[in-house]
Amino acid sequence: MNDENINIDWKSATSIFDFTVKDLDGEDVPLEKYRGMVCLVVNVASNCGLTKSNYRQLNELYDKFKDTGKFAILAFPCNQFLGQEPACETDLKEFKLKQRIEFDFFAKVNVNGKLACPLYNFLKSKQGGILGDFIKWNFTKFLCNKEGIPVSRYGPRTEPLEIGKDIMAILDD
């Protein structure tokens, strides 16, 4: 699990581009590489009741906008919700291949609690939820503009394709 960046002062961050995360190979990925792109950040799980429809629609959404060169989906596996993402990074790579997922996948993280990934602390602080700033379930989605600022938060039951119009609106800015 990616808890190496736990001491980053997320409170002083101004955008998601201030963070570095780990990929599935354990390599550092500065989110700065996404500067100028609209990013959809999602906590994912492979054994959730929402998995099949969300992955299918995330793939469709990615396919719809990837040719613009200005859109990215950043998927962060999380096992904090009823253990619905028990896979290790090796198994996650296999899952990604099997599901034909082309969007970017990162190492497992915690999204809540003392060991929460700093990126998620930042996202939650900028776009709080109805019941507080914690993530309530798998497939919570944060839409960030080209400057890396979180502009919208969507609950787990918001289908990815429903977010398409919001993506279009900020892609055109």
Rank of each mutant, 00 (worst) to 15 (best):
L31Q: 12
T51F: 00
D63L: 10
I16L: 08
N59L: 11
K33D: 02
K11Q: 15
D18A: 03
K66H: 11
K66W: 06
L40R: 02
T51S: 10
T20G: 03
L40N: 02
D18T: 03
K22W: 10
F19Y: 12
D28E: 13
F19K: 06
S15Q: 03
M37A: 04
G36T: 05
D18Y: 00
L50E: 13
V42H: 04
T20W: 07
P30F: 09
K33Q: 13
C48Y: 11
L24A: 05
C48Q: 10
V42A: 14
N47K: 15
L61C: 08
K52Y: 04
K66P: 00
G36L: 03
Y34L: 13
E32W: 12
D28Q: 11
D25E: 14
Y34S: 08
I16P: 04
Y34V: 09
I8C: 08
Y55P: 01
L24T: 08
Y34F: 15
Y62T: 07
G36H: 06
V44Y: 10
D25C: 03
S46N: 13
M37K: 12
L24I: 04
E32A: 14
A13P: 06
V21H: 09
V21W: 08
I8H: 05
N59H: 14
N59M: 10
A45C: 02
K66E: 15
V42W: 09
G49A: 05
K22T: 05
K64R: 12
D23Y: 12
K64F: 10
K33S: 08
P30S: 14
L58V: 12
T20I: 05
A45K: 13
L50G: 04
L24H: 07
D63G: 11
W10C: 04
C48N: 15
Y34M: 07
V29K: 13
V42E: 09
L31H: 14
D18W: 01
V44Q: 13
S12D: 12
E32V: 11
L24M: 06
N54S: 08
A45N: 12
K64P: 00
G49I: 02
S12K: 15
K66D: 08
K66C: 06
D25S: 11
I16H: 01
Y62P: 06
T20R: 03
E27V: 03
T20C: 03
D28M: 05
E32F: 10
L61Q: 04
N43T: 07
F19A: 07
V41W: 01
D18V: 00
C39K: 00
V41G: 00
E60H: 04
E27Q: 14
D28R: 07
V29Y: 10
V38S: 00
L40S: 01
L31K: 13
I8P: 03
K33M: 10
G26Q: 08
L50M: 14
N54L: 03
D18K: 04
D25L: 06
R35G: 10
